[in-house]
Design a protein around this nucleic acid. Sequence first.
DNA 1: TCGACTTTGTGCGCGTGTTCACAAACCCCT
DNA 2: AGGGGTTTGTGAACACGCGCACAAAGTCGA
Lengths: 253, 253
Amino acid sequence: MSAVRTNRTVRGIPDATVARLPVYLRALTGLADRGARTISSEELAAAAGVNSAKLRKDLSYLGSYGTRGVGYEVEYLIYQISRELGLTQDWAVAIIGVGNLGHALANYGGFASRGFRVVALLDADENRVGEDIGGRVVRHIDDLEHVLAVERVDIGVIATPAAGAQAVCDRLVACGVTSILNFAPAVLAVPDGVEVRKVDLSIELQILAFHEQRKASGSALTALTAVAGRAAHSDAPKPALAGETDYPQAVEA
Amino acid sequence: MSAVRTNRTVRGIPDATVARLPVYLRALTGLADRGARTISSEELAAAAGVNSAKLRKDLSYLGSYGTRGVGYEVEYLIYQISRELGLTQDWAVAIIGVGNLGHALANYGGFASRGFRVVALLDADENRVGEDIGGRVVRHIDDLEHVLAVERVDIGVIATPAAGAQAVCDRLVACGVTSILNFAPAVLAVPDGVEVRKVDLSIELQILAFHEQRKASGSALTALTAVAGRAAHSDAPKPALAGETDYPQAVEA
DNA sequence: TCGACTTTGTGCGCGTGTTCACAAACCCCT
DNA sequence: AGGGGTTTGTGAACACGCGCACAAAGTCGA
């Protein structure tokens, strides 16, 4: 895939750290609202749900913004993290697909407050075209190139069904979009230089199910989760290639 | 936090592997629909967007389910992964908060096809109580304990505003729910033995913004993203603790 | 001014995850 | 039956991230 090769980016902020900065930012804004002026790494780490040493190391990648013996000044740290993440400028976002999820995204307040501006809503369904969502009108997907020629778009959000996701992605890339957030349950192929992040609701549930199953089977009934007549971890022989299956067929809607 | 201490779980499937199994599963079901009977690790890896050695090692944690010189039988592998993830049994899911996002989740087709059954919808808004979503009626949040006493719930999905998330979480945990998927932008504190996974729409966008900013500033205008009069990486002195700030204050809605 | 106390910033060891590269295993053709 | 070709499964080296523990650096009171 075309993700960054080296995990550590050019100036040296690890991806793992970048992924946590928004969490720190959220915790800090909450603290600021409650009137805190300074905060120690210990307290902020607790608020963000991480180890305090990790927090300090993360912040040290941005620079030396704390004061030993005191802590970090909340507003100043908010500013520094925001700047590092690029939230001091505003980013134009286009949302493709305004079904349930697209609606939720278009109305999500957490975007606007962090410099993300939804500048275009697109959908393939004629019935949805013309609909007004939060002051923005839904355009038809066929106008994608036209809309993006008029309005600069930095980030494309794909909230279409899986079937159409790759086509939409290709068209976004062709229009010069280099950052894509994909909610469709599909693996997108993109050229180098384009970054795709994926959010998959069902994958998270499946991971939870795995751990839940482990808890349950660990307590008592190891073998019951397996099919009758088959050992728990199924070291039964693989089926012959042309043979009849003796295991249940998985179905996919 | 109360996440699993050791990354490698008891029988030995790494968390990183577990997180990828659903991706493989999706790729496999797609292949099965197109009529593929067997597939090599190279092809499946391409479809799933991972390195083929990684794929083989991941699958080897489940057992030795391939055939050298041939590859993996698609249906058989689907069954094995499904069983490992616990998708051969069905899981009862409760969704708390049926705003835009909750609606999207309640209507999401990807759940039902993988053994996830939405058994309860709850909301704090009286106007939403009684509404019918996909054949299920929205109940009031005050009835949470009552609903969960009648209906077993394995996984709780929190799609409320951030302010109410912790309270809802506490009540779910009190009712015996040990797996929680949190969409609210808040860090949840839970006792040991309860697993929380978090999906945050705005964090993903912020990570994209970071990389997009890096691309842009790398090309030419390193200093322009910084505030006028302040160096790009801002090694300007920290503000005095009681002094006036000379940097823009971040605002939070 | 000095010493006790607090908190940051980071060197270092350790565990996890990723990738390469190759032997082992299997199929198929002759 | 045997040999060539293909693909799996995995040992080993490497890269990355995490957290402990501590020196450095600052505050504050006497």
